[in-house]
Design a protein around this nucleic acid. Sequence first.
DNA 1: CTGAAAGCGCTTACAG
DNA 2: CTGAAAGCGCTTACAG
Lengths: 354, 354
Amino acid sequence: MASIKDVAATAGVSAATVSRVLNAHPSVSEDARTRVLSAVAALGYRPHGVARSLRTAQTHTLGLVISDVLNPYFTELARSVEEEARALGYSVIIGNADERPDLQDHHVRTLLDRRIDGLLLSPADGASAPMLDAVGAGVPTVFVDRWIPGVDVPVVRADGRAAVRDLVAHLYALGHRRLAIIAGPGSTTTGSERVTAFREALAAYGLPLPDTRIGQGDFQAASGRRVTEGFLDLPEPPDAVFAADNLMALGALDAIRARGLRVPDDIALAAFDDIPWFVHTDPPVTAIAQPTGELGRAAVRALADRIEGRPAASVTLPARLVVRRSCGAAPAPTSRTSGIPAPASPTPVRRSTP
Amino acid sequence: MASIKDVAATAGVSAATVSRVLNAHPSVSEDARTRVLSAVAALGYRPHGVARSLRTAQTHTLGLVISDVLNPYFTELARSVEEEARALGYSVIIGNADERPDLQDHHVRTLLDRRIDGLLLSPADGASAPMLDAVGAGVPTVFVDRWIPGVDVPVVRADGRAAVRDLVAHLYALGHRRLAIIAGPGSTTTGSERVTAFREALAAYGLPLPDTRIGQGDFQAASGRRVTEGFLDLPEPPDAVFAADNLMALGALDAIRARGLRVPDDIALAAFDDIPWFVHTDPPVTAIAQPTGELGRAAVRALADRIEGRPAASVTLPARLVVRRSCGAAPAPTSRTSGIPAPASPTPVRRSTP
DNA sequence: CTGAAAGCGCTTACAG
DNA sequence: CTGAAAGCGCTTACAG
């Protein structure tokens, strides 16, 4: 491949002049510019990104470490991150942690070794040494979706509390009283927050949430299956199950179907995170939808702010309930809250088109 | 961040010795090694990947350009690629083309500018200048899933012809005679091959495939919806629709549901590419499953072979039919081919567990 | 076994 | 407006 020296030789100028032309430096004669440009075209020259990065100490690259690419929520998040990053002149390298802290740390280290300009993190676990090192070393960092309390870094996330209250109101109105939750890992913020929100919402209706109805999952389908089987084995099984993410809901569906039970007749099901397939499952699944694309874009903007020396603020966006048929009854399209006592919920409840 | 000079100073040796220790060069005294290692630990030193790459002309990075990350098939492919690459000591940078040739070319160029060691390509379209440049410039390249005829590069892909024959046999046995296909772009190999395979399979049963029953899609859900609406508007609508990928099947499901029709009673549906959600859709969708993980791993191995100077061969793996309920009748779990005349199909038909 | 030196391909003050 | 020179942080023949 041609180097800047080749271009300089062909154009009859110095490498410095070639560099100036390529970087749109103002003080270059029209003549020099023309000759450089045609030499570039003739040689098919493309600047060596690695050399450029070494010299400028900038890679124009963002690192994104997510917990699980196979989770459609994170796939969509990654996609919107890449889109916004591209618009701002960055490329992004995705590290998939597969919900494994060791893999997450591997990716963080690899990304730092590559000297990415900034790091977008959705911690698979609590604080880890490489992550704290990155923050400590002053690498611009932003948490997205999940975060680590006590680490002074902007957080871009959705607040699902109001939507969870709407969900519980919906379940209550449909007659469900023994509600259960398939939780994510307690070491993740989304894992613990969703349980807390659920518990608080139940409390508002005077409903208990005994430990037997809190199943410990890990955001993966298999754990949803396992936990649901446990629920169904209970002397008094729950009449409604809330899965803290879409994959665990898939696992729950597997387990329920394997027992020959039906949703929602035998047991109601709802999920955190909405995905296109929930419209076509049997039955369509009631879910809490995050503004995923907006989260990704806001996270990139916050990170770019930090990288480019501007102050970056945390962003919290609301999630919303999307009612379908998996909790019972057909949604009534005319009235938004028909029959649902909403003790503390001003959040709009969107009903999906049937 | 500490540099190799800092480590050298702390350890009381030269940078060359530090480098030798870090790269496991044999001729280093035990004493020097110890002092370097403790200096590294004390300073928290991590080698500057960019500098190292510039010097060694290796980035230990693979570029993967896929057509659409949001397509679960490609998500899984990307995941297996990353996994195998990591096992072989490479990281991977994913470029999502979103089925847009311009975006694909942008990613190819960006990846080449970063001097990735090798390129894994699933062309969104026919040949493009940047792609041919890459191959021409001698950048190790492997096609995965889709490829470009006439370009001398190893291809790792699945052959779905036998599975398509099985599908047509299945549809025929269930009484369907007016079969239709939602095709992918003719400029992609997977787009055209699946139509060809379908047409040939129909011919074996003496069934016609008029142009009106070949809908032009683009592998995205919206096109599946649009094409299906066209099918349903036909004076004589098809009684079975085969979507050439899972997203177009999702769109077809949308369109069918919007008309108030039912699958499979009013119209049968099958898809190329199997995904976990197909088990839980209403009804569960009969699909052709690719050995996605194997494809990703084989592609990485082929690319690593090329990069490391070994000969790399193309790999073709078989796809297989997974029968569910979307084409009619409940699958008979006892007999694998019950009632299905199979004129030319030795491929095993796997039935999914109900 | 070890270090000084060159060089990977750029960019950017500095001097003219 | 332009070029020679230095230097980003490494690795690696070369000489000792």
